[in-house]
Amino acid sequence: MIESTITICNKAGLHARAAARLVAVASQFSSSVRIGTEKLVDGKSILSLMMLAAGKGTVLNIVVDGGDETDALQAIQALVDNRFDENE
Results as ranks from 00 to 15, higher is better:
39 K>L: 12
46 I>T: 07
88 E>T: 13
60 L>A: 05
78 A>D: 15
43 G>N: 06
22 L>R: 06
82 N>Y: 11
50 M>E: 05
88 E>G: 09
71 D>T: 06
21 R>V: 02
27 S>D: 04
78 A>P: 15
56 K>M: 08
22 L>G: 14
70 T>D: 12
85 D>V: 08
23 V>H: 02
6 I>T: 03
23 V>F: 01
41 V>C: 12
4 S>V: 06
76 I>G: 00
23 V>Y: 00
24 A>D: 07
82 N>Q: 09
45 S>H: 10
87 N>F: 09
87 N>W: 06
41 V>L: 14
38 E>P: 09
25 V>I: 12
38 E>T: 12
80 V>S: 01
11 K>A: 15
18 A>C: 11
24 A>K: 07
10 N>I: 05
80 V>E: 01
48 S>P: 03
45 S>G: 14
71 D>Y: 02
23 V>R: 04
72 A>V: 02
76 I>W: 00
50 M>P: 03
50 M>V: 10
51 M>W: 07
35 I>F: 01
32 S>Y: 12
35 I>T: 08
38 E>M: 14
68 D>L: 09
69 E>A: 15
83 R>M: 14
82 N>E: 15
61 N>K: 13
66 G>N: 10
52 L>I: 06
40 L>P: 00
27 S>M: 10
35 I>D: 01
45 S>V: 12
35 I>C: 10
57 G>F: 02
64 V>K: 02
3 E>H: 13
43 G>I: 13
44 K>W: 12
63 V>R: 08
65 D>G: 08
4 S>I: 08
80 V>A: 04
14 L>H: 11
21 R>N: 13
55 G>E: 11
18 A>K: 07
11 K>Q: 14
52 L>A: 11
